[in-house]
Design a protein around this nucleic acid. Sequence first.
DNA 1: CTCAAAAGCGCG
DNA 2: AAAGCGCGCTTTTGAG
Length: 542
Amino acid sequence: MITFGYYGPTLNPSPDMLLKLLDYRGDLGIDIETVSLVDRTPICLAMAISPREAFYFPIDSPMLPWQKLLDPGIRKVFHNASFDVTILERSKGTRVENYVDTIVAAHILGLPPKLTMLAEILSLPIPPNIEDLIGQRGQKQLRMVDVPEENRAEKCARDAEAALAVWEKLEDLIPMEAFNLDMALLPVLGEMEQRGIRVDVLKLEEHKQRLTKEVGFYKQIAKGYGFNPGSSMQVAYVLGSRGHPIKYKRSTGKPIMDEEMLTTMYRDDPIAQLVLLYRRSRVLLSTFVEAILNKHLVGDRIHPHFNLWPRSGRLSTTPNSQNIPVAIRNIYIPSDGNEFEVWDLEQIELRVVAYLSQDSAMLQMFANGEDVHEATARDLNVDRGTAKTLNYAILYGGDAHTLFVRGGIPMDKGKMYLERYFAKFRGIKAWIDETKAGVMQTGYAITMLGRKRGFPDVQSSNYFKREKALREAINHPIQGTAAEIQKRSAIAVASYPLVNIVHDENDFDKPVGMDIPIPLNLAPFETPVEIGRGKNWKDAKS
DNA sequence: CTCAAAAGCGCG
DNA sequence: AAAGCGCGCTTTTGAG
């Protein structure tokens, strides 16, 4: 054991120093160091009882008071709890309860997640930088286990202190409902990660064979025309030589050759069609099929890690389990004897808009159980497609220009539609204006439960930066509130076999007879759930 | 050669 | 195309 105080480490602490720790019942800052980020074997642990008092223990030290960690009466403070808690639970074989996470708190307040940066922002002592111990990123780095113990001990202890100190400052600032939601979600995500999703490996191999053939075929044809279909520069060159005008990005001067351009400007040229076909097959093959087969498979399952760091409050996953193409979703299958069940929160983002704005017309549409795009179309006297584009433009802060680019609606018509839209949905217009005014004044936007995200660019002198920030600020409460509702739904079904969460969707791998009750009261408004079941993910969604 | 940035695309 | 939001991942590009 080494103790750390205001003046530095004490190598031979007196017995009453340990007694002080044993008697302590307040919040306990914790940090664990492992062999490396890859090898998560724990090597040491520190406990902080104040922002400048910590105790360091090698992991096998007989003096390490494990009972402090496992005592549900003592609140533990971690920085990145999902890392440390997983390690603790694995090595001690028991649940860790009653803890808070400063990284979760930081995300909810829209603050940077690095402990050193949080300490700096909050005017606290700054803990050692990991790169000073193991070397800069991109260079050859040491493993933590190779760092001299005195440096490692200092790092571990100071991090434990900093976590505690940061928590003490943030506790009063944080919107507790949003924070408790994420803390409650952490163990649910942990279980889901452990459970993993089953993959039909044979089916995956079939996809691989087919796609490999397709990619080779398209490539061969392109070669006949003398270009690599994977290179936008070469595609542009070929299209240019066939007499097509080429558009260039203003910022980089490179040709724009994305799907949008190929399906509009170059639609009639078979070269464009070839490139589109090639890209589609290549992405399916290398980004999905081969990646799963070669990198993510553990037995016949993948175990994505769920991250809580997206700025809006959504989840993200590594490897990504949220962008699996519909075309290959039949590779996600249930365990033997089970079926796949999919829950979708219906039109959750537009319901959130209706709630946040309290717009009477849109609230009424939902109250009537109408198809909201259909109803919008009827009320604005436009077709359903236009109505849908209009509704989505609102979600993302778009304007007439958006309607032009996304929906091909001429600018003058778009302006007219928007006027009609805001005349019908006056509350939405008012909410957008209020939200913009709010972010201009305070610098941040906020979700239903109080999650914040800062938008410094609303003060930018650059028109485009400013407008972008305002669009993001409009979207944040919508996307973020929808995420909060989805998180509540995942927590509510925590005791059921959840295998994936895709933004507004819960996926289960469940016994055929199992009836999972739909949670009620997820929000202060109706949140209907559409349920599908099937023999694989794709089947369950259609 | 290596490496970071950009382009492009999958999903909600 | 600096003009809808949020992500993660692969390949190409171009600078050193």
